[in-house]
Design a protein around this nucleic acid. Sequence first.
DNA 1: GTGTGTGAAGTGGTTCACAGCG
DNA 2: CGCTGTGAACCACTTCACACAC
Lengths: 208, 208
Amino acid sequence: MKIAEPTVERLVQYHRLLEQLVAEGQKVVSSQEMGEMLSFKASQVRKDLSYFGEIGKRGVGYHVDRLHKHISRILASPRKWSIGLVGVGKLGEALLGYKAFQSEKFRIEALFDVDTDKIGKDIQGIPCYSSDAISEVVREKKIEVIIITVPGTAAQHVADKALQAGTVKGILNFAPVSLSVPGDVLLAAVDISVELEKLLFFLKHKDE
Amino acid sequence: MKIAEPTVERLVQYHRLLEQLVAEGQKVVSSQEMGEMLSFKASQVRKDLSYFGEIGKRGVGYHVDRLHKHISRILASPRKWSIGLVGVGKLGEALLGYKAFQSEKFRIEALFDVDTDKIGKDIQGIPCYSSDAISEVVREKKIEVIIITVPGTAAQHVADKALQAGTVKGILNFAPVSLSVPGDVLLAAVDISVELEKLLFFLKHKDE
DNA sequence: GTGTGTGAAGTGGTTCACAGCG
DNA sequence: CGCTGTGAACCACTTCACACAC
């Protein structure tokens, strides 16, 4: 079944919200309530949830615990993904320590950096290799996803080397450039400066 | 004139690309070329650029330098925005040091943290205040935008306190929660964990 | 001939409105 | 009755296709 990107984005948010509600002990929730908490229209919530079968109770709402489990199953991974992170600067380290980044769905198997002080060491329990060895290590460890947190100038090069290994299926790019990758590689970009620029642009436009 | 969000996003990317081309000394560029480099359709590029008047030359393409200046003007700020950053953890510090974050368009005027080791000090040249003083400092310094890089559990509280000052018009949220803010406050969210979850979800779906 | 600018057509996602079930 | 589930209407953005300027 085909499922649109914005829908997946919202599913992840429903899931996060439900985690909270479970913790708070709330038993039942309506599309109305969920919508208000996440700033979505109630009809949007219902449509999203209906894609995966009738899960709510008419006249009542959604059973929090049940819905939470349901969405967990939709988002579940068939297995643990193997991830490599390239660029152990401030941002890279921030990600490593990030709580929302501890997940059963993947494991960060290798770090890469150009800094000789870091190469050969373990950082937060994960071995750091030279960026020159990306292809080899990625291939050896069968890494399927790489996270790029290097400066923009190095990002394309890093991506190319990682893809050479032939095992990489997805890239999460934090560098402020748009990468070129083959069509069969999934690419997600988190572009912090673009986000800020957009915000400032619309602020300006509201002012006027 | 109304201009859509996806268009602004692309404009920022054209701008970045053109900076490169200017540096490389390229004189002329076609919608075709730009599209290839950024993975957009050429027609998309042309439509985006045409919103702001005829800027290209038919049969030739776009004059790189001229187009770069043109988009600079579109994205320009009327004045320097005053920004506060709440949460000087790894991510906050990463942002402070981030090169793509040095801009003429804004200045980070204040930092906030709960860590007493940081409060009262200057960090990367910017004074750090107690998170308890957000309302007061934001009001005093007339801060218009706040960047939130605190843990999810604290984010809504921080946002509420900043908004109390009455000067905040926009929020850039990095915490993995969806904030509730009044309708007249612009909200941009950079949700790293959602982005990764989405990537993994679509990886799974391609596998099957 | 070549590449832009743009109305018109197409696509995909959101919202409505109401039937249907608990 | 109340709230879900969902086809249909709507809306926004993208892509096409071609006239037009260089």
